[in-house]
């Protein structure tokens, strides 16, 4: 599969950039592009932000996920406490980041 030139990978590694994540995802959608977002390591705390569920809905099930190992390492329960807006299939591994590199024509890390 070749990268989709209209798809934007947003790889979230920092726990302090939710306004940028939401701002860029919304701007991408407005511009007719498709955001694909992955939260890893300490950025998974952003799943507790009140804006997270709306972001998950904007992206759609196939295009937003979090690192389940990171979520567990940070003390959350990845079985009984799945973040609002996600389901168990969106609790993923670093392979989702690999998919972002393969599928998205453009990429930004936050």
């Amino acid at each position: 599969m070749s990268a989709d030139p209209n798809k934007l990978a947003i790889f979230v590694t920092s726990p302090q950039n939710m306004r940028h994540v939401v701002g860029i995802a919304e701007a991408a959608q407005k511009a007719g592009k498709k955001p694909m977002v992955f939260f890893t390591y300490k950025s998974i705390h952003l799943t507790k932000d009140s804006r997270f569920a709306a972001l998950a809905e904007l992206c759609g099930q196939d295009d937003i996920a979090i690192c389940a190992d990171s979520y567990t390492c940070e003390g959350y329960d990845s079985v009984t406490d799945i973040p609002a807006g996600l389901n168990d299939k969106q609790m993923r591994t670093q392979a989702f980041h690999g998919a972002q590199l393969d599928e998205c024509g453009k990429y930004i890390v936050l």
Binding site: T13, T40, Y41, K42, T93, Q94, A95, H97, G98, L101
Partner: peptide, 17 residues
Amino acid sequence: TYSDGIRSALGLAVENH
């Protein structure tokens, strides 16, 4: 506190990057 970047790189290495 962000040496987890090493694990992230390994995640890509196993994806053949």
